[in-house]
Design a protein around this nucleic acid. Structure first.
Lengths: 206, 206
DNA sequence: AACGGTAAAGGCACTGAGTGCCTCAAGTTA
DNA sequence: TAACTTGAGGCACTCAGTGCCTTTACCGTT
């Protein structure tokens, strides 16, 4: 097989393997950006999948090949974040406590999100106006929960019981910290600090 | 206004006010029970709203007048539960701690649910097989969160910060306890005990 | 440089959810 | 009984999502 250089960095494992993959990646990006722009301009409900596809020079059928449901075009990187979360947990798997693992997973996600505040605020502005999207967003946490609990359950019943609580607990802190981080002004408080603060609040309230 | 006796207990505040309301209540019940039966027999996805309506001798249009979306026919009493939750919190509003209020809310819900284990297991069996329903179920908790945090926010910033964590924390324990309660055999452990156990686990894991 | 294989995009037709609007029937009040 | 009111039915429509088939264009080989 001949590898040709269509892409800046050949060492990037996520670099497309050829022209076909490059086009796919471009189209995916185009759909996401087009959708965001249209949602901001006209509102989520007023924009149909047909509109998005047409503006991105693609067909409706193709849109649904990339995103299972309309909402998902705003959660495109969810898979990557989940992978980061599970990866972070795996890195701390040896530690005795399920909580430490869960928090390590959250830290991995935070690291990914931290540098992208402004970009995420645009997305959040769309989410805040549409209940269906808030629901979807919330469901993502639930799926993370199930994925993590499923992946890290051990033989020991004790460990599992704590895991079932620690994972949602850590994700709850992520969620609350994330909301406050995006809502707050440029006060210099990092996402990690917000998450830690939520953790402190949670510890104090149980 | 003349109150006629169409209903067994005239003192029940939820008793229908007349024949019209009685019919509506009957139809609502018929839709719920028909839907449950059909879902059990054929699966949620294989049953359309048309099917439900037809089997309940009603029209599709009417179904959607009672239940905004198809899934909601399985969450008919959600409003009542939310009201119980908020009522429970209100009863403990005077206490200093937001956590105490949140737990009081959960206790109120638990009291409502406790005597109805077998009935709820049927419903849970349907929920467990359909991702869309699990999502919906999870979203309900999110709405409860928002409702409670919105309703009980005070001037004091400190109280609010704790409230934002205590309410989801208490609901998390409700959720976990509820799942274990329905999943477990007839081991005599009550829902309240399961919820308390989850609370203990949460306290130990943060 | 041409060629056959393959994978992704497009097109089409269909189902089913959800909604707006109007009509009709039945319950309610005077 | 007549006038009012409210809830159910019917109809037509939009749009999300899917299965199936065709078409395009990239890919590896000769």
């Amino acid at each position: 097989m001949v590898l040709r250089c269509y892409y800046a960095d050949m060492n990037d494992p996520k670099a497309p393997r050829g022209l076909r993959e490059l086009r796919a990646q471009q189209l995916r990006t185009a759909l996401i950006e087009t959708a965001q722009r249209l949602f901001v301009d006209h509102g989520f409900d007023a924009v149909s999948v047909d509109d998005i596809a047409a503006h991105a020079q693609a067909s409706r059928r193709t849109f649904f090949r990339y995103f299972g449901v309309k909402e998902d075009v705003l959660f495109a990187e969810d898979d990557a974040l989940l992978a980061a979360f599970l990866g972070g947990m795996r890195g701390a798997e040896d530690t005795a406590s399920a909580l430490a693992a869960a928090r390590a997973g959250v830290r991995a996600v935070v690291t990914t999100l931290e540098p992208r505040r402004e970009e995420l605020r645009v997305r959040q502005a769309i989410l805040n106006t549409v209940p269906a999207l808030q629901d979807r967003s919330f469901c993502k946490y639930a799926r993370w929960e199930r994925a993590a609990v499923g992946a890290f359950a051990r033989g020991a019943d004790d460990y599992n019981r704590i895991l079932r609580v620690a994972v949602p607990g850590a994700l709850l802190c992520l969620r609350i910290g994330y909301d406050l981080w995006l809502a707050s002004g440029k006060d210099g408080v990092s996402l990690q600090q917000h998450v830690d603060a939520a953790h402190g609040d949670l510890a104090r309230s149980v």
